[in-house]
């Protein structure tokens, strides 16, 4: 075991630390509540975490480039209601989903263009988009939810394949693909390079603007995918859906070890981060802790994780 750790660098150690944190949390809730460590509850946690987890993948890419995307929750709502209106117009499910995804991707692309060509800081560009997409969704629906869908659509939330809930499968597929892209493709390598040192990346011949646009576009696309999952689960697309999701996604990413300064991070870490938040919510619910106190606990966990991170790093350097 010790030998294993000697081969790991700080970031890999960090990831193990987060993973052990998740295990410790599970152990704690198993002791405190008889209902926690059951197959159905654990699948439940995974299912509840899936939507935030999918959004967090886009967030992780963006944060690795030293950016941020505050618009993910609003983009989710807007692309969700557009998709729902297409489905209600009687068009086939794949077309509805495709339209929703296109809306999400476009919102993300606009973010990217504001950041790259407009030279606006990501915080401000996506803050603007957060308001614009939210307003667009409300305006489009007149503030009313669009409800009631075919069972074949709702299968995306309630269905199971080999006893595994479909949202969990979607989550696993998204994470596998994102992990592959980040570790084994040109785009992944460029993502780290841009966030680590944009000047050096540019002087290595990387077309920074192109890749940032793609990355913000993907963040929007994944928000739209989350919209599909949420709409299917609620059997309703709501223009007020996804409020504060950006904060959960940022929290999952940061707990997972991605640096807000860019250049570092993994989607595996983010998945663990998203699960930690999911387990906390679920466990505290089982223990009957009020949702007000839950917010305090989750906030503390975020700060604690980063405090630990920063101090460990400083003591190492």
């Amino acid at each position: 075991m010790k030998q294993l750790f000697n081969h790991l660098n700080f970031d890999q150690m960090r990831q193990f630390g987060t993973f052990f944190g998740l295990l410790a949390l599970c152990a704690l809730f198993t002791i405190l509540s008889p209902h926690f460590f059951t197959t159905s509850n654990l699948l439940n946690v995974a299912q509840q975490s899936a939507i935030i987890a999918v959004i967090s993948v886009g967030m992780t890419f963006v944060i690795i480039t030293a950016g941020i995307d505050l618009s993910v929750g609003s983009v989710l709502a807007f692309s969700g209601v557009v998709m729902a209106s297409v489905l209600h117009a009687g068009l086939p499910i794949p077309i509805g989903i495709a339209v929703g995804m296109a809306v999400g991707f476009t919102c993300g692309l606009v973010n990217g263009m504001l950041v790259t060509y407009g030279k606006i800081p990501p915080f401000i560009a996506t803050l603007g988009m957060m308001s614009i997409a939210r307003g667009a969704g409300l305006w489009y629906t007149d503030g009313r939810p669009i409800s009631g869908f075919d069972d074949s659509f709702r299968f995306l939330a309630n269905g199971e394949i080999f006893h595994i809930p479909v949202p969990v499968i979607i989550m696993i597929v998204v994470y596998a693909a994102a992990h592959f892209v980040l570790t084994r493709t040109k785009m992944g390598r460029y993502t780290y390079a841009i966030g680590g040192n944009a000047d050096a990346a540019r002087l290595s011949g990387i077309n920074i603007k192109l890749y940032l646009n793609i990355i913000y576009g993907i963040a929007g696309l994944l928000s739209a995918l989350a919209a599909v999952m949420l709409t299917a689960r609620l059997n309703s697309a709501q223009p007020i859906a996804g409020i504060m999701y950006e904060l959960d996604a940022i929290a999952a990413t940061v707990i997972g070890g991605t640096s807000l300064f860019g250049g570092k991070g993994t989607v595996i870490g983010t998945l663990i981060g998203a699960l930690i938040i999911g387990v906390l919510r679920n466990g505290l619910n089982l223990l009957g802790v009020s949702s007000f106190i839950q917010q305090i606990v989750i906030g503390s966990v975020i700060i604690g994780a980063i405090l630990l991170d920063t101090n460990l790093k400083n003591s190492k350097k």
């Binding site: 493709t185 390598r189 050096a200 990346a201």
Partner: peptide, 29 residues
Amino acid sequence: KSEGLVLDLSVKQNISLPNIKKFIKAGVL
């Protein structure tokens, strides 16, 4: 440090950075 290297990336990743297409086959590193 500010223009030549991406300090967080490894020796290997910095070396291949300007010409990464050399190491890509069917989209995979």
